[in-house]
Design a binder for these strands. Structure first.
Lengths: 105, 105
DNA sequence: TTGACATAACACCATTTGGTTTTATATAAT
DNA sequence: ATTATATAAAACCAAATGGTGTTATGTCAA
């Protein structure tokens, strides 16, 4: 974790804690301490998760006094959306086939 | 990997090799050997990745003679799509704000 | 300037992950 | 029946992951 170099979005969102952090940041910009208060985990652990999210460019933290405020930056999720769209097309085809069957009855 | 019990979709697609396997299965149902031929990796390694995908219910393999044919089963990706939709809404809001600024000029 | 607070930077650790090689089992073909 | 083929199962290993605790470092407030 601490030695990782190139986190992509898929790896970043693989961890449920990190997904929950993103969810929290959907509503408010939060400091590390505030984020930590939502979890049963040390501040250091949360800080590491935030670094992973930061490397994936899913959040960015700006220093404000002695606090670091993290803000959501969801743009990289477009990569995920684009990847998914490939399979959505497959679902749609299946739905169309189903519809075709129904219409033929 | 071999001792894992409860793979979820997010973990399953975190690995680039597994994403490529899914992509291959989008076009054809393939045996382990056929899938392996697309990678620079042992058949055993690919079989393990297929087990992970199988536990996440993203593929299902059926025995046919001495081959095991894997077929894509994309339905569990709906979980991913639903999770993503939360953030798509956020992007749309940003776009609307941008449009508003432009119209005010 | 001292003390409290928020984060950063380390060193450390157990478990998981992603691969290997080896051995076994089942099926197909000759 | 024998041999080749396809997968399964197991033992093994290095590196990554997800945590911990401890020790700086910087900032705010009294």
């Amino acid at each position: 974790m601490s030695t990782a170099q190139n986190y992509d979005v898929f790896q970043a969102i693989a961890d449920p804690t990190r997904r929950e952090v993103l969810h929290l940041l959907l509503d408010n910009n939060l400091s590390i301490a505030e984020i930590t208060s939502h979890f049963d985990m040390s501040r250091t652990a949360i800080a590491k998760h935030l670094h992973v999210l930061e490397k994936a460019n899913l959040v960015n933290g700006t220093r404000s006094g002695r606090e670091k405020i993290y803000r959501l930056h969801p743009e990289p999720l477009t990569e995920l959306r684009d990847w998914l769209s490939y399979y959505e097309r497959f679902w749609n085809n299946k739905l169309l086939k189903l519809k075709f069957v129904v219409e033929n009855e």
